[in-house]
């Protein structure tokens, strides 16, 4: 029989991992990933069964879903949105662009992946990733929400630099035909 303190702590951990409120940030992408993120809330994928709510206010969010390559003007906004979120929080970079700039890498107004600006915890590959993969990315970030970043580091839990990279599935690997 655990004591009330341990019970309370277990309840808090449970609550934190079962109530991920999403802040969606488009850092200059093409809309593909953004629409797929919204799509996860729709009947087919029903993200709300994991407690997901799409909140518009960064101060109330737990997981920052970033899409798109880092655009130079938006970069500052992204940083500001990230800073406004309270710990515990996690960052999920959705799509190839958010990972490394994708097809836009090298374009004049593009910095590269969003990892340049905020510490990314999970990268979800794809252009755009399917809603299933985006949900998978959110779920991969859930354990990180159990404790604030500093506490995680102190107890040797998942550190801010440990990055979960979802492996592409067999059907997602594009094989370029030899022309």
């Amino acid at each position: 029989m655990r004591g009330p303190r341990a019970l309370w702590q277990a309840w808090v951990r449970r609550s934190r991992t079962k109530s991920p409120w999403i802040v969606h940030f488009d850092c200059g992408g093409c809309n593909g990933c953004d629409i797929e993120i919204l799509d996860t809330l729709m009947p087919r994928f029903s993200a709300e069964r994991f407690g997901v709510i799409n909140v518009g206010d960064p101060r109330q969010g737990d997981i920052l879903l970033v899409t798109g390559p880092a655009n130079l003007r938006n970069a500052a906004v992204l940083r500001s949105v990230y800073d406004q979120m309270a710990e515990p929080k996690a960052v999920v970079a959705v799509g190839s662009c958010a990972a490394h700039g994708g097809v836009f890498r090298g374009a004049p107004n593009i910095l590269g992946g969003v990892g340049e600006l905020v510490p990314v915890d999970v990268f979800v590959p794809g252009c755009p990733p399917t809603p299933e993969r985006i949900l998978e990315g959110v779920i991969a970030a859930l354990p990180l929400l159990a404790e604030p970043r500093t506490a995680r580091q102190a107890t040797g839990g998942p550190s801010p630099m440990s990055i979960v990279m979802l492996e592409p599935r067999e059907e997602e690997v594009v094989r370029v035909p030899a022309s």
């Binding site: 992408g29 093409c30 655009n71 994708g102 836009f104 374009a107 004049p108 107004n109």
Partner: peptide
């Protein structure tokens, strides 16, 4: 300017066929 990527300028640097996947992602 929050989603400006400079695609027009980038398209001028890539071959015609490689512009297609780029412009699809406008």
């Amino acid at each position: 300017g929050y989603v400006h990527r400079g695609i027009e300028a980038e398209a001028e640097r890539r071959p015609y066929d490689e512009d297609l996947p780029l412009l699809e992602r406008v």
